[in-house]
Simulated scan of single mutants.
Amino acid sequence: MEWRRIAARTAGRARYAAGQGLRSAWYTAQMQAARARAEGFNRPGEPAFQPSRGRPDMAELRRAYFELFLQDRANIEAGLYPEPRELRLAGLPGALKAARAFQQDVKAVDERRLARDGKALQRDIQAGGDFLQRNANRYPDYYLQNFHYQTGGWFTDESAELYDTQVEALFSGTADAMRRAALAEISRALQGRDQRRQSLLDVACGNGRFLEKVLEVWPRLNVTGLDLSPSYTEAARARLARWRQADVIQEMAEAMPVENESFDMAVSIYLFHELPPRVRPLVLSEIFRVLKPGGLFILADSLQFSDRPPLDGLLEYFPHGFHEPYYKDYLAWDLDGALTQAGFVKECGTLAFLTKVTAWRKTHL
């Protein structure tokens, strides 16, 4: 009956609001604790940040924050993906362990941030004797940095374990919700299709968190993750081990060991802002190559200048407060022009808080 549907929808919205509110509060508290331990940003001795695009409009930031969750809930009610159920007692010990490790690493991260030192990893390699020195020629120079000033860069198991907590804390518990905007595009692409006959490539899959969410929704979808980090790919393999059709490859995105026209879909989550300008078109060319004619590429990455003009000042600050050596260039990069030049045709785009998700079709040849 109609009243039952209304009651169920109302209960679902209340449950969702409570869960996401608690989740955001948890990660916001972790970031506030980290900032307190670091004694705040722009403190004496730190190079001052002089914005050229004005201070961010905090009212607009709050508006975008709430819009994210409203859209996420609308996607759930539209049947694009199920409601997240991450707040479980079974996961509490792991969450507490991750929170402690995050706080313990704050001092080292803050020291690099104050010194504007993103090259600690390269010095460790030059010091000699470890795995990285023996294998450093496998990795391009731009990759051998402490992105976000994180300990170990992309090359330690501890970094792979900490990453999810670091990102969620940075974005006040919204990272997974922002990623689900990309999940919605996958859902639309798969409607009416047999998931067992569809294949998806996650370019720069990291520790496999997004692919895990994909497979929880479509457990028979054929997925492949590709990432250059040895520690993150190992973590991704462990995370996806229960799905026999899931594969993880350790290799560069600009030189994928993948056959031509072998995937129906490709997705990239927060990769392109960490690539040098000269590498971005190489990666786009590779993605175009491995997609089947008519295949779909879903790109989720940071907002750029003018996507939400009142927040341009916030975007401008980010590479100052965190080690993002290519982010400033990315903010003004002609994303649409680059994708069009690579041969893609834009289908749609949406903003999800501080993330922009666009979907692109490989033209039939």
Rank of each mutant, 00 (worst) to 15 (best):
D141H: 05
Q145T: 12
D72S: 09
Q103P: 07
D72Y: 03
G153S: 04
L170P: 02
N75K: 10
Y65G: 08
Q133Y: 03
H148R: 11
R123P: 02
G79Y: 10
R112D: 12
D141K: 08
Q103A: 13
R179L: 08
A181L: 02
L121P: 00
R88W: 07
V106F: 08
E86L: 13
T165L: 14
V109F: 09
R100M: 12
F66I: 05
L89M: 06
Y163G: 04
L170E: 12
Y139M: 03
P82F: 02
A59I: 10
L144R: 01
Q126K: 09
G153R: 03
P93T: 06
G118L: 02
G152F: 00
W154V: 00
N135I: 07
K107R: 14
L132C: 00
Y142E: 10
E86Y: 10
E185S: 04
E83K: 07
A98Y: 06
A120W: 00
D117R: 05
G173E: 06
N135C: 09
G79E: 09
A181M: 05
L68K: 04
S187R: 06
D105K: 08
A64W: 08
E60F: 08
L121V: 00
R188F: 01
G152L: 01
A169F: 06
E60S: 15
V106W: 09
A59N: 12
